[in-house]
Simulated scan of single mutants.
Amino acid sequence: MDIYDFKNAFLIGFFMAFMIGPVFFKLIQTSILKGARAAISFDIGVILGDITFILIAYFGSRSMLEKIKDDPRLFFIGGLVLIIYGLITYFDRQSKKEALENAKTIEVPIKSNYIKLFFKGYFLNFINVGVLAGWLGIVVVVGPTLYMNPTSIFWYFATVILGYALTDLGKILLAKQLKNRMTPLVIYRVKKIMGILLILFGVILMLKGFIPNEKIDSLIH
């Protein structure tokens, strides 16, 4: 995996950590009310949920990925997944209040129990089917570009998770400031930006199936 792939993977992890939803607010809420250790326990569960989704997406679509490797035109499928996910994100009308209410459906006891927080983080993330769709799109994009090399794919997603985890750690440490700044208007704008970025990535991926790799690489580098 070259330095470009590393930066790309790290940025994906960074952006995934800022997808607005119940997990985002629950992580901040847990950090403020229970402290950094409790929030880290919760976040480890969330990250394990993401790893589970990555494995499901990878092994569940492996036969399709093998075809994409041999037929670049099937990049269209991965691009379509990202565009659909981007449109859902862009037009999602869920407010900050609704996201907080969803987050509160899983209560944290007054006395922090790190094991319970871990499992609550895992299941709160795991029940979000939209997260699976996001990881599926990324897996479909990444697998063929890395020539389905298991080692390269492993290190790519390890870097994604590293970027995700480090960003979440920053969110935990800056929880109070983030909570005060996440107004409905800011959340609205973040969702719009994330939706547009996902749509753009999807369009680029579709084009990649019809434009020779040499031309794309020359534009990127």
Rank of each mutant, 00 (worst) to 15 (best):
G137H: 04
V131D: 01
V131H: 02
G121I: 06
G121V: 07
E107M: 09
E107K: 14
V129W: 12
F126Q: 07
F123C: 06
L136R: 01
I127H: 05
G130V: 13
V140S: 10
F119N: 05
W135G: 02
V108H: 10
I138D: 01
I115A: 15
Y114V: 05
Y114N: 07
F126V: 14
F118G: 05
E107A: 07
E107S: 14
Y114K: 11
G121T: 07
K111Y: 12
I115D: 05
S112E: 07
V131I: 14
L117G: 08
V140D: 04
N125E: 10
V108C: 09
Y122C: 03
G137F: 03
K120Q: 14
V139H: 00
F118H: 08
G121M: 07
N128V: 09
V131E: 02
Y122M: 14
G134D: 03
I110N: 14
K116G: 06
V108K: 04
G121N: 02
G134V: 00
Y114T: 03
K111I: 13
I110V: 13
Y122G: 03
L132C: 08
K111P: 05
G130Q: 13
V140W: 00
E107I: 11
S112A: 15
G130C: 09
Y122H: 09
A133N: 04
I115C: 07
K111Q: 15
I127R: 04
L132H: 02
L124D: 00
L132N: 03
Y114L: 15
N125K: 09
I115L: 15
L136G: 02
S112L: 09
L124T: 08
I110F: 12
L117Y: 01
G137W: 00
V131T: 11
V140P: 00
F123P: 00
Y122K: 07
L136H: 02
L117C: 06
V131K: 00
S112Y: 03
A133F: 13
L132E: 05
E107L: 09
V140M: 15
N128M: 09
V131W: 01
G121A: 08
I138Q: 04
A133H: 03
E107T: 11
G137V: 06
V129N: 08
K111M: 12
V129L: 15
N128E: 12
G121D: 00
V139Q: 01
N128F: 13
F118I: 09
F123W: 10
P109S: 13
A133S: 11
I115W: 13
W135R: 01
V140T: 12
W135E: 02
F118N: 06
W135A: 03
A133D: 02
F119G: 04
I127Q: 06
K116R: 12
Y122V: 05
I115H: 13
K116C: 06
I127D: 06
F119E: 04
K111G: 10
K111T: 12
N125Y: 03
G121S: 08
Y114C: 05
L132M: 07
F119W: 15
N128W: 08
F126D: 04
A133G: 10
N128P: 06
I110M: 13
F118E: 06
N113M: 10
N125M: 11
Y122R: 05
V129S: 10
L136A: 05
A133K: 05
N125D: 13
I110S: 14
N125G: 08
V129I: 15
W135M: 03
